[in-house]
């Protein structure tokens, strides 16, 4: 339970990689892993969103939503915000993604165009919500949560980066027509997942 943030970070990147062991966030992982630069852009956006939303969601959860927190805050007996957890997490993520979208549109038009519809879709990227929910279930502290959010983002970035590198090479290899595109990508994902399983013995996350 009381793992140090560094261990959690390491585990989130490698041993419990959100893509390769959780198979979360797959749609944008597959859609945007065609080019390395787009993949890195998306990976950074996901990392940014996942780090900050995890931190925000931790604060909101522990100071407002958690059973007993509202009683402490207001002094009114019987108040419980726990039931809102999911809907509030989603709202926080949505608001945050919208702000990131505004920022990217302002800073880099070319990244904005390359990410296209997948940028607002980070809102419903299950990896992001998954990270917030895992953080609650696993009972991480604040720092541990930030480490977990950041690590998961970096893990996702690493996964999509590896995949984009492989797919750029795949473009020049002979693939049976029935497997071209998504098919071979799925197979590659499976093989990468098996490779990532090798890390499993190193740290145990509960």
């Amino acid at each position: 339970m009381n793992q140090s943030p560094l261990v959690i970070l390491f585990a989130a990147v490698l041993t419990n990689n959100i893509v390769f062991s959780g198979f979360l966030g797959m749609c944008s992982f597959i859609a945007l892993s065609k080019r390395i630069d787009t993949a890195i852009g998306m990976g950074l956006a996901v990392t940014f969103v996942s780090t900050f939303t995890t931190a925000l969601n931790w604060l909101i959860y522990h100071y407002i939503l958690k059973t007993g927190a509202l009683y402490k805050l207001t002094g009114i007996e019987g108040l419980d915000g726990e039931i809102f957890t999911l809907i509030v997490f989603i709202a926080v993520i949505a608001a945050f993604v919208q702000i990131v979208e505004l920022a990217i549109a302002r800073i880099s038009q070319s990244l904005y165009q390359a990410l296209g519809i997948f940028l607002p879709l980070i809102t419903v990227n299950c990896a992001i919500l998954g990270v917030s929910l895992f953080m609650v279930i696993r009972g991480y502290g604040f720092l541990a949560s930030i480490a977990f959010g950041f690590g998961s983002g970096i893990g996702w970035l690493l996964a999509i980066f590896l995949m984009a590198g492989i797919r750029q090479k795949l473009r020049f290899s002979k693939i049976s027509p029935s497997l071209e595109g998504i098919g071979i990508t799925m197979i590659t994902t499976g093989i990468l997942a098996m490779i990532f399983m090798v890390f499993n013995g190193m740290v145990r996350m509960n």
């Binding site: 809102f84 809907i87 509030v88 709202a91």
Partner: peptide, 18 residues
């Protein structure tokens, strides 16, 4: 009463985000 407060809290959070 508690229901009303809970809803107000929820609406406050949403308002801050918006």
């Amino acid at each position: 009463m508690t229901l009303a407060v809970e809803i107000i809290v929820f609406m406050l959070i949403t308002a801050i985000l918006t």
